[in-house]
Amino acid sequence: MNSEFKQVVKVYKKNKLAVVAFFIAAVLMILAVIGPYLAPYDPVEINLQARFEPGFWEGNTDHILGTDNLGRDIYSRILHGTGISLKVGYAVIAITAVAGLFIGLVSGYFGGVVDIVIMRFIDILLAFPPLLLALVIAATLGTGIEKAMLAIAIIYIPSLARIVRGSVLTVKEMPYVEASRAMGAGNIWIITGHVFPNVVTPVIVYLTLLLGDAILYTAALGFLGVGIDPTTPEWGAMLSSGKDFLILGKWWITVFPGIMIFLAVLSFNLFGDGLREAVDSKLRL
């Protein structure tokens, strides 16, 4: 296991872009934790005396990235927003992993009517354009970051369940599974001991590729004002509140949160791509 990991790292390190992406992603992950302590202002504190203040480019040292239409400090809001976006991203991964694995394992391992019913239901969920599905589910559940997490996870659960099911169908025909059953092993033992460890690699790769995407959907929901409270310092919600002031030339309200979304999505996507390539090359060896 250890040497396999080393092999993956070795291949990954050859991809310079992926290495840079990994460092940016790591910085973002650290910022998500310590960001709120670095923030000089309360991210939701309204200060009407300090509305639309430009930042450092006009020599502003109090608010280095300027203030928005309610006088809130954009730098502080961005720092708090990092935590929100990554928290949603992690939660989406966790929910998707648990639900997708469970559904895929049950469906693939037991087969029969259970499998047919589950697969039909998955077909139905996949019949919606993904953003539309997340949007209406978030709208139905109401406002709240936990609800947004659930709404976004529902986009990915069907695809992951399908991937897992496909792998399970192959694994369960393997001689070692048959051998284990012949020795009297029960279903739970076979699933946890034999099937699960052999389907987990594609799952990990899928989940890594999903993080950037999930952050993008979070920002999209925040921007549309659905599922995420518009006053929270979420990056997408910040774009939405700054949108109308762009024509007045107040560009900093939308430019900086947008750069953060872009940077986060880009670095996590490149990290995921690099990891997939590295794992694929390991599998080919």
């Binding site: 950037g212 920002a219 999209a220 997408g236 774009l239 947008g258 872009f262 999505v265 880009l266």
Partner: peptide, 13 residues
């Protein structure tokens, strides 16, 4: 990787 809603705003600007 670009958020198209942000790209749209930047194009408008």
């Amino acid at each position: 990787s670009i958020p198209i809603f942000w790209l749209g705003m930047m194009l408008i600007f």
